[in-house]
Amino acid sequence: MNDSQAAKSASPDYRTPIGRARGLGSAKSGVGHFWWQRVTAIGLALLVPWLVGTLVSFIGADLGTVQATLARPYNAILLAAFVLALFWHAKLGMQVVIEDYVHTRALEVALQLVVTFACVFGALASLYAIVRIALLA
C-alpha cells in the first residue's frame, strides 16, 4: 500500500477523478448559488444609491424629463445592469425561501418554476422598457 492509498483508507473519497476535478458535488451546482448571490449583491449595493438618487430626482418632473434622463447612455446601461442583477438576486433568494419552507415536493417544484419564469419575465420586460425609452425617447 503506497502513501496515497493509505490517505484514502483513513478518509475514504468515493468521488470519481473527473467528479473531484469539476468540484460540483452531488447537486451538480457546486458553490454557484452562493457565489452568484454575492456577486449580484455587491453589484446591487453599488447601484442602489445611484438608482434611489435618480428616482428621487424624478419627483415633480414631467414624463419628458424622466424619459430623457433614463435615455442617457450611462443611465440606460446602468439601469439595464441593475434590473438584471435585481431579478437574478430575487430568483436566488426566493429559491432558498421556497426550499426552506415548502415541504411538499410537487408544490415546491411548481413554485420554483413560477419564481424562475416570473423573474425572467420581469427582467425581460424591464430590458424591453429600457431599450424602448433609450431608443425612442
Binding site: 434590473v83 433568494g93 420581469g122 424591464s126
Partner: peptide
C-alpha cells in the same frame, strides 16, 4: 433580512411595471 427580501421582490416587479409605463408614456 428574509422578510424585506420578499417585500423587495414585489418592489422589483413594481419597478418593471413603472419602467413599462415610462416607455409607453
Amino acid at each position: 433580512h428574509r422578510a424585506t427580501g420578499i417585500v423587495l421582490v414585489a418592489g422589483a416587479f413594481a419597478l418593471a411595471w413603472w419602467l413599462l409605463a415610462v416607455a409607453a408614456g
